Measured scan of single mutants.
Amino acid sequence: IEKFKLLAEKVEEIVAKNARAEIDYSDAPDEFRDPLMDTLMTDPVRLPSGTVMDRSIILRHLLNSPTDPFNRQMLTESMLEPVPELKEQIQAWMREKQSSDH
């Protein structure tokens, strides 16, 4: 029984630690959010139409349809242009958020 109590305490400790580690990014500025999924972008790319999306989301879309989801023009992965300035701004915002939450 004592071992179970210790195990339960350890589990509670881990759960509390994980809860502290989770950071809420739901208040991200609109320009940091993917327009299709409304999630925080981690690897922004510009489509030929000028729309900026997260790379993982547009690549997932391209698996089903080789088109720009906003104007239905033909689109391939090679046409995606990285946006390193925005990526750095997002990373800086995330770092600031992490340091203010801890």
Rank of each mutant, 00 (worst) to 15 (best):
S78Y: 07
L36M: 02
L47Q: 00
E2M: 11
P66C: 07
E13G: 11
M41T: 00
P66S: 08
Q98P: 14
P66F: 04
S78C: 11
D54E: 11
E77G: 07
S100G: 13
M41L: 05
K97I: 13
K17Y: 07
L63I: 13
A28E: 00
E85A: 09
E2G: 08
F32L: 06
L7I: 09
K10A: 08
R20C: 10
S100V: 12
L62T: 00
R95I: 09
Y25D: 15
S65C: 02
I1M: 10
P29S: 04
E13V: 06
T51N: 12
A16P: 09
D101C: 06
M53K: 01
K10N: 12
D38G: 03
R33S: 05
K5Q: 11
R33G: 01
N64P: 00
P82S: 15
L36P: 01
A16E: 12
S26V: 15
E81D: 11
P35H: 01
A16V: 09
S99R: 11
A28V: 13
R55C: 02
H102R: 11
A8E: 13
P69R: 00
F70I: 02
E88A: 14
S26G: 13
K17I: 07
Q89R: 12
T39V: 02
S65L: 03
G50C: 03
P82H: 04
D24K: 02
I58L: 04
P29R: 06
E12A: 08
D101T: 05
A8L: 10
V15A: 12
I1R: 09
F4Y: 09
L59M: 15
M37R: 02
E96S: 08
D27S: 09
V83L: 14
F70S: 00
E12N: 03
K3S: 05
S99N: 10
D30G: 08
E31V: 10
A19G: 11
M79T: 04
P35S: 01
K17Q: 13
A19E: 13
E77R: 08
A92R: 06
D38H: 03
P44H: 00
E22V: 09
W93L: 04
E2Q: 08
A8S: 14
E22R: 07
D38N: 04
D27H: 06
S100N: 12
R72H: 02
D34G: 00
T76G: 03
T67R: 02
V52D: 02
F32S: 01
E2K: 10
L40R: 01
E96R: 04
I90L: 07
S100Y: 07
I57F: 14
D101N: 09
K97H: 12
A92N: 07
K17T: 13
E2H: 03
T67Y: 05
S65V: 02
T76A: 06
I23A: 14
N18R: 15
H61L: 00
K17E: 14
R33E: 02
V15L: 12
E96A: 12
K17A: 15
K97R: 14
P66G: 07
H102A: 06
W93F: 14
S99P: 12
P35T: 02
R72D: 01
L6I: 10
E12Q: 14
A21S: 10
A92G: 12
A92P: 02
Y25C: 12
S99I: 09
S99H: 05
M79F: 05
P82L: 02
K5E: 09
T42I: 11
N71K: 01
L40I: 10
K97G: 15
Q91T: 14
P84R: 08
E85G: 13
M74I: 11
E96G: 11
Q98S: 06
V15K: 12
D68Q: 00
D24T: 03
M37V: 07
E96P: 05
E88G: 15
P66H: 08
E96M: 02
S100C: 11
R95G: 11
I58S: 01
P44L: 00
E77Q: 06
D68E: 01
I23G: 07
A28S: 13
E81V: 13
K10D: 12
L36I: 15
V15D: 09
Q73L: 12
S99T: 13
T76Y: 06
P66L: 09
P66Q: 08
D38Q: 01
L63H: 11
P35Q: 01
K5R: 09
Q73D: 05
H61R: 01
H102C: 12
E9Q: 08
S99C: 09
I14L: 13
K17M: 14
A21D: 14
V11I: 06
S65T: 04
D38S: 02
R33K: 12
A19M: 14
D43Q: 02
S65N: 03
L36W: 01
W93Q: 04
E96Q: 09
D68G: 00
D34N: 02
R33W: 04
S100L: 05
E22Y: 13
F70Y: 15
M74F: 03
S56T: 06
Q89H: 07
P29E: 02
F4D: 08
E96H: 05
P48H: 02
S78V: 03
P44S: 00
L6P: 10
D68Y: 00
R72Q: 03
A21P: 11
S100I: 14
A92L: 07
V45F: 00
L59R: 09
L36S: 02
K17L: 11
N64F: 15
E12T: 07
I57N: 06
E81L: 04
R95T: 14
